[in-house]
Amino acid sequence: MDTPSRRTTLTIALCFIVALIEGFDLQAAGTAAAGLRQSFALDPRMLGWVFSAGIAGLLPGAFFGGWIADRIGRKKILIGAVLLFGLFSLVTACVASLSGLLQATFIVGGLAPLLVVPLMLLLLPESSAFRQQQGTPGLTRISTGQALFGEGRARTTLALWLSYFFTLTVMYMLLNWLPSLLLEQGFSKPQAGLVQMLFNIGGALGSLLGGLLLDRCNGIKVVLFVYAGLLAALAGVGLSAGLLPMACAGFAAGLFVMAAQLVLYALAPPSYPTLVRATGVGAAVAIGRLGSVAGPLAAGQILAAGAGTSGVLLATSPGLVIAALSIISVIARPASQVEPGLAAANPAAPKP
């Protein structure tokens, strides 16, 4: 029997699988960094460009994906996105003749999403809020500018953009550069691999931790705790000399950076009404992708200038402070200002 509880569980499971595969693909370049650097004789500055070029496509994908999802539905755009990044990952595996293991990285990252697409077509439901909104008589579309900045949302939108930008700058810098930074500090490849694994385990737990804390604790205290923890973890990565303290710092960095991202993804959707929610969140994620491009590129430039790992990590600290203060300003706003209705622009729209 197809009960609502069973459908909810199935939807969560499918979204979890997609997120897992996306995470694998996002880290593929960082995992392959050593092989890329050796095969193409890349210096840190050039490798930074490689990482940033790989992430650049995320920006238009995030913005236009949200904009299109508000018009044709969340399910269709999600399935199309998974199909495309699976196909392009397979194409990437054929671009260069690296070692067998490095080919394997992109092949697995390409085949896995293609295998999930049929399950999504058959089992993933469309958003109920979107279906209800689409069935409203007399519904009219509003412009992207009004969606992002109208009805008192300008301050919230700009604050979200700042927090997404600086948080994803650090997150993608770590995703792409952590193994190379560890090698720069004198750790061996197996040791760097161990710290990277602990970083990923910490990231998985961090997502759960962020959600749990937001459900049970004051949002401002959660943000302060998460971002303070992230700053401390980055200091640990920059200053640790032995494997044990570095492993602990790497685990903590993954834990807190993913918790920070979870906090942002949880707080952005309620800031926009259903009719423009995907557009608003997509725009914030797109701005975050600018940070994800800037992070690896800036890290390469700083390393090439001779600043070392500590210099790279120290340069991220002011941005994280700005990100924390920005998202706190969103939390602190009255609920009536965070999620205003669309009555003025759309009389037929349901009340929030």
Rank of each mutant, 00 (worst) to 15 (best):
R71E: 04
V281Y: 00
P245I: 07
S127D: 07
T274E: 08
A332T: 00
L297A: 13
P270K: 07
M173G: 10
C94R: 15
G152Y: 12
V281D: 00
A29V: 14
D25L: 10
Q261K: 09
A81E: 02
G219N: 13
M120C: 13
G86S: 09
I142S: 00
L47M: 15
R7K: 12
G65A: 09
V82P: 01
L20F: 15
A249T: 08
R155A: 12
L124H: 02
A112Q: 04
G30E: 08
F24I: 12
A294P: 06
Q337D: 11
P296I: 03
A159E: 01
T156Y: 00
L325Q: 07
L20T: 15
A349S: 14
N176M: 12
S180I: 04
T144M: 13
S143Q: 01
D70V: 04
Q301E: 10
L123T: 07
V50K: 08
A323E: 01
I201V: 15
Q38A: 15
G295Y: 02
Y265S: 09
T167E: 05
G341M: 13
S329P: 01
G150S: 09
G30M: 09
K75H: 12
F165M: 07
L264S: 09
P113R: 11
S180A: 14
L314Q: 11
D215M: 13
